[in-house]
Design a protein around this nucleic acid. Structure first.
Lengths: 210, 210
DNA sequence: CCCGGTATCAGCCGATTGGTTGATGGTGGG
DNA sequence: CCCACCATCAACCAATCGGCTGATACCGGG
């Protein structure tokens, strides 16, 4: 089999450098280019047509998720291998849904990286064990139903210590409606008070990215 | 000036590899060794006596913070340069207090890294701009007073949706005491209800590391 | 065409919360 | 030795919250 061409996408120069060093130190891989955000990644992918794109999800300009969506929308040939630092429920599932071929954690040993890239190039799905188990539990759980837009809005205000009455004024709705939204989002999050709802919000990445 | 000897501490092989590659590609630096957690770092530092230790803070076995404390307790000669992914209020200040000479973000450009290490070796403090501004604001704010142990405990239970009464039973104290703790931690966090307190808890890293 | 999800609103009621005031005892640093 | 901080407890009260029951309305998919 011929060389596997790579595109590295990460906002940290250190990480890009590390990956480049790793893949250049063994035969069978060619690093075509590096990108530091999602939009750059999409542009370079269109230009260079790499076999595999190693991509971090959390990046300042142009998130990795949007980049993955854009790539699969354009029908890009490249397989996207998400390589991220932590696996949160909020990240993994959407990334896979968006078209990522694999999902690895950065603390994976070198060899695991290499085989993962080869697997990805061959079109096979590769998941870190930790991610895989998260996925199955996510699937096993019927519907963690993400919150409706309005509900997220209410939750965000709750997290800032806003009372129901204030939320009502803030959103130009009645206090009754606020309470309804709260009841609904409590059910969806599986909690029964606003404090726990806020905690779940952070835990699931609904809150926190300011 | 002679070579600056380095010890790299990070739980991610990729990052260690990247750093090693960077510092070996330019003259003036020698990478003595790598460690993947805090305890290993302390042991290696004692053995090899490096000039500068590049250390990540968040690591599985033996956190970086404890390692820094241990090093300064032992009066180690090495300057510790914290090199982390994000700068949260919860991390920076304690790290500096514990004896870190500098605090850099991983998305710093290569050159900044090199000069930072040289500065650190010379005993000068180096801070990422972002970290520096955080520090001044942290100092400008009189006392972000971290929560008392019991208060953290109560807050953690609140985040799980526990009611005051249940918290009381859980901790073998009266409900009145729980309310007192809550009032205190509300004041310290600058909020006035438990939902906002939980949010602050996550925002400041008090909650969330399970 | 009906159903599920979203968004809006209302009223009631008991439980919980948060504010206030006040008190006791231990501990550690200046 | 005193003060600050921590941890504990009490009682009171207004405000807020959460649960319940119900209703209207729009929209999109099956």
């Amino acid at each position: 089999m011929s060389e596997i061409s790579l595109l590295l996408v990460d906002d940290h120069p250190v990480v890009r450098n590390g990956l480049r060093g790793m893949f250049e130190s063994v035969p069978g891989f060619t690093v075509l280019a590096e990108a530091s955000d999602g939009v750059e990644a999409v542009a370079l992918a269109a230009d260079l047509d790499p076999d595999v794109i190693l991509m971090d999800l959390r990046m300042p300009g142009g998130g990795g998720l949007d980049a993955i969506k854009e790539l699969s929308r354009r029908g890009a040939r490249a397989k996207v291998l998400v390589l991220t630092t932590w696996d949160t429920d909020a990240d993994t599932v959407p990334a896979i849904e968006a078209g990522a071929t694999g999902y690895l954690l950065k603390d994976a040993p070198r060899d695991e990286l290499f085989t993962a890239v080869r697997e990805a190039a061959a079109g096979r799905t590769v998941l870190s064990p930790a991610v895989a188990s998260r996925l199955v539990s996510a699937v096993r759980t019927p519907a963690p139903s993400p919150l409706a837009p309005r509900e997220r809005q209410v939750l965000a205000l709750v997290a800032m210590g806003t009372s129901n009455r204030e939320i009502a004024r803030e959103l130009f709705i009645s206090e009754a409606t606020v309470k309804t939204h709260l009841s609904h989002l409590f059910t969806k999050l599986g909690v029964n008070d606003r404090a726990a709802a806020v905690a779940k919000g952070y835990e699931q990445g609904i809150l926190g990215r300011d």
